[in-house]
Design a protein around this nucleic acid. Structure first.
Length: 914
RNA sequence: GGGCGCUUAGCUCAGUUGGUUAGAGCGUCUCUCUUACACAGAGAAGGUCAGGGGUUCGAGUCCCUUAGCGCCCACCA
């Protein structure tokens, strides 16, 4: 017998080879391609656009998660025969990339981007992109991603840039984009505006400063509290509640801004809470969103006191040029000296910080570009409400609605260089020209002296177009026409607002269609104790290292089986190791089956074996003309497999991928490997059973490989190849094979079996398993090694015929001595000095001359009897209750049968104990 | 303040139309190198499914409630 396959699965050499085979073989491209002859537009495709990773990114577990899930979805649909497209690509990631390049320039050349100038800096960034941009896509390939790399896109590609301009201009023309001074979140570190979403709030210790707002020409004052004293410089009013008895009389009077001496009014506004702080509120419209709103109501002036770097500007008097925190300290000291300070107290509050840079974000008045979002949000809400888009898990629909219904205008301009430059030109007269193509003159006055807006667009503006811009939009390309709208949008719930919501809005706005019909949200990957992974905590698991150690399949299977939709998962290396073991188990089952097929081949070649040409994938008996009588084990594993296929298909429909994977795992390991393969070894000894056994082995393995392929593509493909060649079949890739259960069953037609045959076979085999287990159990209790063969007497009653057929299996798997096993329907004379095992209606006597002491054996039986009696009591009570009338008859019958069985068992044990 | 999720074996978690004796992996303990696999096989111990109440013949699963943990949104200076 030849044994070419190594003992352990070698993923290291297998994975790159297999991936190259797939990619160069064109397996990732849709078979129904609108750009190729023979295209059939009536066949509906399945499409996913990849969530584009940052072009400078390094692979992390978030990538591993989405690739695993999406590749699973893609492979599943592809194997169903559906033309399947997974569009890959990368995102230019404005801030992230620019920061990275800036850091690099500073470190290596000691130049800042300002010193380099815009043009040169962009040149360097493109160089950087060309150099490092392929790393992430190579790493995604390592995960086994079956995307169509011939359709790879980058958000700054010409085509996608055109899409961005088209989108911008269209919105502008509809009046949905406007420019103007507004209070925005300013990141002093990055020196750019950021959107509300890019601000994170963290609870921190701060100080609440109490001070006096002196009334003009008076010794009276209004006490006011603030966390940011430097904003006093920008105060334009003090507000109190109109009903506040303490301050009512001051309303309409004038107070003096400390140090600066400006005069500002005391106003009344119900927004002010009488209970909080001093009950009086200083109004700084230039640097606080709430104050800004109040100022709008009251027509108050707005004063900006900070510049781009958050240093005090010319409005700050003597503090001009000081950093905001420095000014805070100095101003407070000066106020103290002036006797204006009341007290300071520690205070816990939420501080807004930049998501990228981490520094405190400053609300500031700044001229920016905005998208009027409400007209876009409305249809986006509708699309989910009326079911055109379904979100999985469903609870996120509520989160989505809540955000969408309270959405504020979106600040889309960024003061960065790396990105899509805003397609707006200005002339000296202040006219704006908004154009799809770079204009040469002002559209209003014809002036040739025009310059483009310096700002670029928020990265999410272009990613919002991703599902259609990658397919050619705004051109009506064949790809766009056929593959759009896409099918699933799969991503982490953390970017539901950032990305998913914006894709829905822009998809509906620009293409008039929902860009996908299903949003599937996965959870975040945390460490094994549920903590967020972070470099500072040192608990980061690097997927590349994990793959090096345990293989891609193990990582993928772990991520898929260990997670439920929308819920975070805790990952530990231990779990990956366990799944590496699973891949190895699969490998070895495969090895066993393949070696068996090959050995059969040899047997046949030697002219000693059965006739026919071996396994063909159809019924052997037809070709040999011989009636093949399947053994119980054959039927059992086949029945279990039918159930598995149905279950897994159902789980896939419900997005229960983890559950599906778990079930396949259990079937393969616990049913197929632990039981059927062991039985097969016995059946293979029997020349009459050999052919059907090999056939069953091959069939079950075949289907397992298909079911598992979307989860663990590499190892299944590798075994598949060996299996095909052992069966002398053409070497087709597993991923080109049918997954569909209907197709599987059609491929292996079963002789018609009566209704309920599956349950019957499973129940019968369960009895055999129980018998074997109970003997093994006894053996373990008595510390009897398997090498010591035991004698046994079995009385099977109605099950005698079944037992007789299975005697060989029981004998072998329970370690009995064949010559000393006797079987009877009933026993008139019970063997003496024997252990008694009662399994359902079957009694087993194992004479263990001297090995079992009488007392221990009686104790064991007494325990068993007590258990049986407990069950009898429970069941009798149950059956006497309303259960018998109200529960479905089938369930009641099951309980009745159980009761009868327990009674019988109890009887037998009692007899034995006498 | 509003919303959501979680609480099941020592650890990490499954358990989706409510229905056998609640499962898995890891860990622990006993045996076994049985010709696919020691990345293994056979067996064992370990849970009043967070607490309380309710609906039901029947609840880990549905409803109410309490507590703890976590997340998201909003942000009273």
């Amino acid at each position: 017998m030849t044994n070419e396959l190594p003992k352990a699965y070698d993923f290291k050499s297998t994975e790159p080879r297999i991936y190259a085979m797939w990619e160069t073989g064109g397996y990732f491209q849709p078979w129904n391609d609108p750009n190729k002859p023979g295209f059939d537009p009536s066949v509906k495709p399945f499409v996913i656009s990849i969530p584009p990773p940052n072009v400078t990114g390094e692979l992390h577990l978030g990538h591993a998660m989405f690739v695993s899930v999406e590749d699973l979805m893609i492979r599943y649909h592809r194997m169903k025969g559906i033309p399947t497209l997974w569009v890959p690509g990368t995102d230019h990631a404005g801030i992230a990339t620019q920061l990275m390049v800036e850091r690099d320039l500073l470190k290596n050349e000691e130049v800042t981007r300002e010193e380099l100038g815009r043009e040169e800096f962009l040149k360097r960034t493109w160089e950087w992109k060309r150099k490092y941009g392929s790393i992430i896509t190579l790493q995604i390939r390592r995960l086994g991603a079956s995307c169509d790399w011939t359709r790879e896109r980058f958000t700054l590609d010409d085509g996608l840039s055109r899409a961005v301009r088209e989108a911008f201009v269209r919105l502008y023309e509809k009046g949905l984009i406007y420019r103007g001074p507004r209070l925005i979140n300013w990141s002093p570190g990055l020196k750019t505006a950021v959107s509300d979403l890019e601000v994170e709030y963290s609870e921190e210790d701060a100080t609440l400063y109490y001070f006096k707002y002196m009334l003009k020409d008076s010794n009276e004052f209004i006490p006011v509290a603030t966390i940011r004293p430097e904003t006093i410089l920008g105060d334009t009013a003090v507000a109190v509640h109109p009903e506040d008895e303490r301050y009512k009389r001051y309303i309409g009077q004038t107070v003096i801004v400390p140090i600066l001496g400006r005069e500002i009014p005391v106003i009344a506004d119900e927004y002010v809470s009488m209970e909080f702080g001093t009950g009086a509120l200083k109004i700084t419209p230039g640097h606080d969103p709430n104050d800004y709103a109040i100022a709008q109501h009251h027509g108050l002036p707005i004063i900006s006191i900070l510049d781009r770097e958050a240093k005090v500007n010319e409005n700050g008097g003597r503090y001009q040029g000081q950093d905001r925190f420095e000014a805070r300290k100095n101003l407070w000291a000066d106020m103290k000296a002036a006797g204006l300070v009341i007290k300071e107290e520690p205070y816990r509050t939420t501080i807004p910080r930049s998501q990228r840079g981490g520094e405190i974000v400053e609300p500031m008045i700044s001229t920016q570009w905005f998208v009027k979002i409400e007209p876009l949000a409305k249809p986006a809400i509708e699309a989910v409400k009326d079911g055109r888009i379904k979100i999985v898990p469903e609870r996120f629909e509520k989160v989505y609605f809540n955000w969408m219904e309270n959405i504020k205008d979106w600040c889309i301009s960024r003061q960065l260089w790396w990105g899509h430059r805003i397609p707006v030109w200005y002339c000296p007269d202040g006219h704006m020209t908004v154009a799809r193509e770079d204009p040469s003159q002002c559209a209003t006055c014809g002036s040739k002296d025009i310059y483009q807006d310096e700002d670029v667009l928020d990265t999410w503006f272009s990613s919002g177009l991703w599902p259609f811009s990658t397919l050619g939009w705004p051109e009506e390309t064949p790809d766009y026409k056929y593959f759009y709208p896409t099918s699933y949008m799969e991503t982490g719930y953390d970017i539901l607002f950032f990305w998913v919501a914006r894709m829905i809005m822009s998809g509906l706005e620009y293409t008039g269609q929902a860009p996908f019909h299903t949003v599937y949200l996965h959870g975040l990957v945390r460490d094994e104790h549920g903590h967020k992974m972070s470099k500072t905590k040192g608990n980061v698991i690097d997927p590349l290292i994990v793959m090096d150690e345990f293989g891609t399949d193990a990582l993928r299977f772990t991520l898929l089986v260990g997670s439920t939709p929308g819920n975070d998962m805790n990952l530990s290396v231990k779990k990956v190791e366990a799944n590496r073991n699973f891949a190895n188990k699969l490998w070895n089952v495969g090895r066993f089956v393949i070696n068996t097929i090959n050995s059969l081949e040899e047997t046949r070649k030697a002219g000693k074996g059965t006739q026919g040409d071996g396994y063909t994938g159809t019924q052997v008996h037809k070709e040999t003309g011989r009636e093949v009588k399947w053994t119980l084990a054959d039927s059992w594993i086949w029945a279990k497999l039918q159930q598995l296929i149905r279950d897994v298909e159902r789980q896939f429909q419900n997005f229960q991928y983890g559950q599906a994977g778990q079930q396949i795992y259990d079937f393969l390991w616990s049913d197929f490997a632990d039981w059927y393969v062991e039985v097969a070894k016995i059946q293979l000894q029997n020349a009459d059973l050999r052919l059907q056994t090999v056939e069953t082995l091959a069939r079950v393995l075949d289907i397992c490989l298909r079911l598992l392929h979307p989860f663990t593509p590499f190892v299944t493909e590798e075994i598949w190849g060996h299996l095909r060649s052992a069966l002398l079949q053409s070497p087709l890739s597993a991923l080109a094979q049918d997954w569909s259960p209907a197709l599987i069953i059609a491929r292996f037609p079963e002789p018609r079996e009566p209704e309920g045959w599956e349950e019957e076979k499973i129940a019968d085999f369960a009895l055999i398993q129980e018998i074997i287990r109970s003997i093994r159990n006894l053996r373990a209790e008595k510390n009897t090694p398997l090498s010591k063969k035991l004698a046994a007497t079995m009385a099977g009653g109605a099950k005698s015929a079944l037992l007789k057929d299975q005697l060989q299996v029981i004998t072998a798997l329970a370690g009995l001595e064949a010559a000393q096993v006797t079987l009877a329907e009933t026993l008139d004379e019970k063997p003496q000095n024997a252990a008694v095992l009662v399994v359902g209606a079957v009694e087993i006597y194992i004479p263990l001359a001297g090995m079992v002491d009488e007392t221990a054996e009686r104790e064991r039986l007494a325990k068993e009897l007590a258990e049986a009696e407990a069950h009898i009591a429970r069941l009798e009570k149950l059956l006497a209750s309303d259960f018998a009338v109200k529960a479905p008859p089938a369930i009641v019958q099951k309980e009745r049968d159980k009761l009868a069985l327990y009674k019988e068992t109890a009887e037998k044990i009692r007899a034995q104990l006498q």
